[in-house]
Lab assay of single mutants.
Amino acid sequence: SSQSQGISSSSTSTMPNSSQSSHSSSGTLSSLETVSTQELYSIPEDQEPEDQEPEEPTPAPWARLWALQDGFANLECVNDNYWFGRDKSCEYCFDEPLLKRTDKYRTYSKKHFRIFREVGPKNSYIAYIEDHSGNGTFVNTELVGKGKRRPLNNNSEIALSLSRNKVFVFFDLTVDDQSVYPKALRDEYIMSKTLGSGACGEVKLAFERKTCKKVAIKIISKRKFAIGSAREADPALNVETEIEILKKLNHPCIIKIKNFFDAEDYYIVLELMEGGELFDKVVGNKRLKEATCKLYFYQMLLAVQYLHENGIIHRDLKPENVLLSSQEEDCLIKITDFGHSKILGETSLMRTLCGTPTYLAPEVLVSVGTAGYNRAVDCWSLGVILFICLSGYPPFSEHRTQVSLKDQITSGKYNFIPEVWAEVSEKALDLVKKLLVVDPKARFTTEEALRHPWLQDEDMKRKFQDLLSEENESTALPQVLAQPSTSRKRPREGEAEGAETTKRPAVCAAVL
């Protein structure tokens, strides 16, 4: 046999249950609850290399294929790409003598399909299967379609040439079993990697079954959420508030809700932002270029202005709740996480202390139980975000031990490091100062900020419009641009040419 590394010779191994799959997660993409704000000051410096380099560890398999027929071997997927077919160049070659004697062998292509993985959001991997055969590759009886790919989820059954000719079961060793999710959700989405997690739940990458488009699904544990919100009269209202707010909003710089499922837990389906959180971008770069800050901040102002015009105060604006559309420097941003939002009543007064301390406005800290506050709290938070983006460190921090965090904020005395700000323009610093004003009545509004000289930049605004146009074009394009080929190089076993392929839609398939 010419099988590559990772293939075992026996096809009769006992199949494990899916609970053996491991679970991976990374930083929070968007969480309903406010958790302790991640610290920006503690960015690790590059460490000196050791005298002796450690040995390379043996790579762990990321997936496993269990053979369902004699003549096929099990495969431990270690590499990122595997070709399957009769050709000797394939990493998994159909060359077992037992297999060659079967009637089905002649229906398999020289290069029938490939399984591979690509880097997705949060640097996690996504597994795909890609059909290159004349007679078809099927996943859970659905045709992939020649020249098309679809994501592979845990426990997928792979069939060759005929939908009933099941050859492998695919085990993704990095994700959960699909069966743990409600059927209504599974009918519409293929669940994938964990993108982030918080005290009350997690955010998962998923794929729409009909279109193969990526989405983010925010899962909120009702049990954990009820415990964490025990002081509230009705904890469920917080989730329902977020859903109702998101459904009503329609702005290019605000995250869109696509679906909602109320089962044992809450499942909020949101558009996916491939670039992750602004927080991670700031930490990764230490600070952002001023031109990049301007492009992002302009969009934040437009989003918050839209919220305020619609009578909504976000109340928890922070870099973790600003998501980026891509890994590119120039990209769209979207505001997310409306769990603490407040729809303005007639009095415009709110007395609930919520939000993240580092970003809270002075009037929030001094008015607990005594007075109210209004939309100006969001403008203060925007000032803190702009400060961080321009400088790479927070204006107020618990680690300045000589003054408490509350006193720093209520006095408006931010930590100004001259040598850092020497590289920032006077106009940018002036806008920061106009937003970090203790008196909410004297603080800049979103309208005033948008009129500030720093943002009178036609090149930046043109760039934003171009990015918007690109997004609109990409969302308007159909996901499947061509029909699967019906040509046949070899006959199917026991049926006429093209008899099955043309009847089945290529579900969740995307043209390369």
Results as ranks from 00 to 15, higher is better:
residue 248 K to S: 13
residue 248 K to P: 00
residue 248 K to W: 11
residue 250 N to R: 08
residue 253 C to L: 05
residue 253 C to D: 03
residue 253 C to P: 04
residue 254 I to S: 02
residue 255 I to N: 06
residue 255 I to M: 07
residue 256 K to I: 12
residue 257 I to V: 10
residue 257 I to E: 12
residue 260 F to W: 12
residue 263 A to S: 10
residue 263 A to Q: 05
residue 263 A to R: 05
residue 263 A to E: 11
residue 267 Y to G: 01
residue 268 I to S: 14
residue 269 V to G: 13
residue 269 V to D: 06
residue 269 V to F: 11
residue 271 E to G: 08
residue 271 E to S: 14
residue 271 E to I: 11
residue 272 L to I: 11
residue 273 M to C: 07
residue 280 D to E: 08
residue 281 K to P: 06
residue 284 G to N: 06
residue 285 N to Y: 14
residue 286 K to Y: 07
residue 287 R to K: 08
residue 289 K to V: 03
residue 290 E to R: 14
residue 291 A to N: 13
residue 291 A to P: 09
residue 292 T to Y: 12
residue 293 C to T: 05
residue 293 C to D: 01
residue 293 C to S: 09
residue 295 L to I: 11
residue 296 Y to H: 14
residue 297 F to C: 13
residue 297 F to H: 09
residue 301 L to A: 12
residue 303 A to G: 06
residue 304 V to W: 03
residue 305 Q to M: 00
residue 309 E to P: 00
residue 311 G to N: 02
residue 311 G to R: 08
residue 312 I to F: 13
residue 314 H to P: 03
residue 315 R to V: 01
residue 318 K to V: 02
residue 318 K to E: 02
residue 322 V to S: 03
residue 322 V to G: 02
residue 323 L to K: 11
residue 324 L to R: 03
residue 330 D to V: 10
residue 330 D to W: 12
residue 331 C to Y: 12
residue 331 C to D: 02
residue 331 C to P: 02
residue 332 L to A: 13
residue 333 I to Q: 00
residue 333 I to L: 05
residue 333 I to S: 02
residue 334 K to T: 12
residue 339 G to D: 11
residue 341 S to L: 03
residue 342 K to C: 08
residue 345 G to M: 00
residue 345 G to W: 15
residue 346 E to D: 10
residue 346 E to V: 14
residue 347 T to R: 15
residue 347 T to C: 15
residue 348 S to D: 05
residue 351 R to F: 07
residue 351 R to I: 11
residue 352 T to R: 02
residue 354 C to L: 04
residue 355 G to W: 03
residue 356 T to A: 07
residue 357 P to S: 15
residue 357 P to V: 15
residue 358 T to D: 04
residue 358 T to P: 06
residue 359 Y to V: 03
residue 359 Y to W: 03
residue 361 A to W: 01
residue 361 A to L: 01
residue 361 A to M: 05
residue 361 A to E: 03
residue 362 P to H: 03
residue 363 E to G: 01
residue 365 L to S: 10
residue 365 L to K: 01
residue 365 L to R: 01
residue 366 V to I: 10
residue 367 S to C: 12
residue 369 G to F: 15
residue 369 G to R: 07
residue 370 T to H: 12
residue 371 A to G: 08
residue 373 Y to W: 15
residue 373 Y to H: 05
residue 373 Y to A: 01
residue 374 N to H: 11
residue 376 A to G: 07
residue 379 C to R: 06
residue 382 L to N: 00
residue 386 L to Q: 06
residue 389 C to R: 03
residue 395 P to A: 11
residue 399 H to N: 10
residue 399 H to R: 11
residue 404 S to E: 00
residue 407 D to G: 06
residue 407 D to E: 12
residue 408 Q to V: 00
residue 411 S to W: 02
residue 420 V to A: 00
residue 421 W to L: 08
residue 423 E to G: 00
residue 426 E to S: 04
residue 428 A to S: 12
residue 430 D to Y: 06
residue 433 K to D: 01
residue 433 K to M: 13
residue 440 P to L: 03
residue 446 T to R: 01
residue 447 E to Y: 12
residue 447 E to M: 09
residue 448 E to C: 15
residue 448 E to Y: 00
residue 451 R to K: 07
residue 455 L to F: 12
residue 455 L to R: 00
residue 463 K to S: 15
residue 465 Q to P: 09
residue 465 Q to E: 00
residue 469 S to R: 11
residue 472 N to I: 13
residue 478 P to S: 09
residue 479 Q to Y: 13
residue 479 Q to T: 08
residue 480 V to C: 14
residue 481 L to D: 02
residue 483 Q to H: 02
residue 496 A to P: 10
residue 497 E to A: 14
residue 498 G to R: 15
residue 499 A to T: 03
residue 501 T to P: 15
residue 502 T to K: 03
residue 504 R to C: 10
residue 505 P to H: 06
residue 507 V to M: 11
residue 507 V to K: 09
residue 507 V to E: 15
residue 507 V to W: 09
residue 508 C to H: 12
residue 509 A to D: 06
residue 510 A to Q: 15
